[in-house]
């Protein structure tokens, strides 16, 4: 299979084949039974005004692991993701109860600067959202606005693009508009942009839902690469994707409030991806995984 740049994509092969292929952690990557939680939710509720979108979430996102949040539409998985780096602060009326600990510190603490939280915990969005600037300036923007000390911006841009597996495709056109790139390249540019400010955690909100299958595979491969240095949390609608990329999976669903009819999301089950997909303990998880609802 040939992509835009005429480069052969070898990595697509292992992903082919029938059924759900479950991510095999590389031989050197030992996955402990309990995640070493660098980011942790303790009894988290997220509200929009008086509407409770998610309730009672206890989760640990393990260091240098990929955690997938899956579940049917409206189960609050994106809402929860956006509360992990205080992106929800920007929504009028949104508030979080409970604690979100980043390296042991509550990111909603009174002395915490949300700006710094967002630099340390980056985010990649559903739709590729490059800035209307050159490829170079897209990467350099983050380091510039956060006032990072940079010896050579050129080196930093190259490093970020290389890590995002985009350098080879764009190194000769760094001054061109980011909009000249394909959708998949734009999304890798957005990942490179996030990497450039040297975060610890990268949150991904359905990063492949606007991309074609080949671009999706490239992003998934990239996630496997990035896991060596970053902790990744990904929301996905695509169960196969969760199975392919995630070390651990959290399954959410929604229940309707009897009085108001509002639907509130809850965490049903959390565990290693192999366990969630092969031996789910909760009937709802099993129904969802086997395609009986959602």
């Amino acid at each position: 299979m040939i992509d835009r740049a005429g480069e052969k994509i070898e990595s697509i092969v292992p992903h082919e084949g029938p059924g759900v292929r479950i991510n095999a952690r590389p031989a050197d990557g030992f996955l402990p039974d309990e995640p070493r939680g660098i980011l942790q939710c303790e009894n988290v509720d997220v509200y929009y005004g008086s509407f409770r979108a998610v309730t009672g979430v206890d989760l640990k996102f393990g260091l240098h692991e990929i955690t997938a949040l899956i579940g049917p539409s409206g189960c609050g998985k994106s809402t929860l993701l956006r509360s992990l780096n205080r992106m929800n602060d920007l929504v009028d009326g949104a508030r979080v109860e409970g604690r979100v600990l980043f390296d042991g510190e509550d990111i909603y603490g009174s002395k915490v600067d949300a700006i710094e939280v967002r630099r340390r915990i980056g985010m990649v969005f559903q739709k590729p959202n490059p800035f209307p600037k050159s490829i170079y300036d897209n990467i350099a923007y983050g380091p510039r606005v956060t006032g990072m000390r940079v010896d050579s911006m050129d080196d930093l841009v190259e490093e970020a693009l290389t890590k995002a597996a985009l350098w080879g495709e764009v190194k000769d056109k760094l001054k061109q508009s980011a909009y000249s790139l394909s959708g998949g390249q734009q999304q890798r540019l957005c990942i490179a942009r996030t990497i450039a400010v040297k975060p610890d955690v990268i949150l991904m909100d359905e990063p492949c839902s606007a991309l074609d299958p080949i671009a999706t595979v490239r992003i998934e491969d990239l996630m496997h690469e990035l896991r060596r240095e970053y902790t990744i949390v990904i929301v996905t609608h695509n169960m196969q994707q969760a199975a392919r990329v995630a070390d651990r999976t959290a399954f959410f669903t929604a229940f309707a409030d009897e009085g108001t009819g509002d639907r509130t999301g809850v965490l049903v089950e959390f565990g290693k991806t192999t366990q969630i997909f092969e031996h789910p303990t909760d009937q709802r998880t099993e129904d969802y995984i086997s395609g009986r609802f959602g």
Partner: peptide
């Protein structure tokens, strides 16, 4: 100006002021 542009900027650790001044207003 799409919300995605503002969110993209804020998610990198830019302030609202920087986002307005460097992204939203020029666009």
């Amino acid at each position: 100006v799409p919300t995605e542009i503002r969110e993209g900027s804020l998610a990198l650790g830019a302030t609202q002021w920087q986002t307005t001044w460097r992204q939203t207003l020029p666009s």
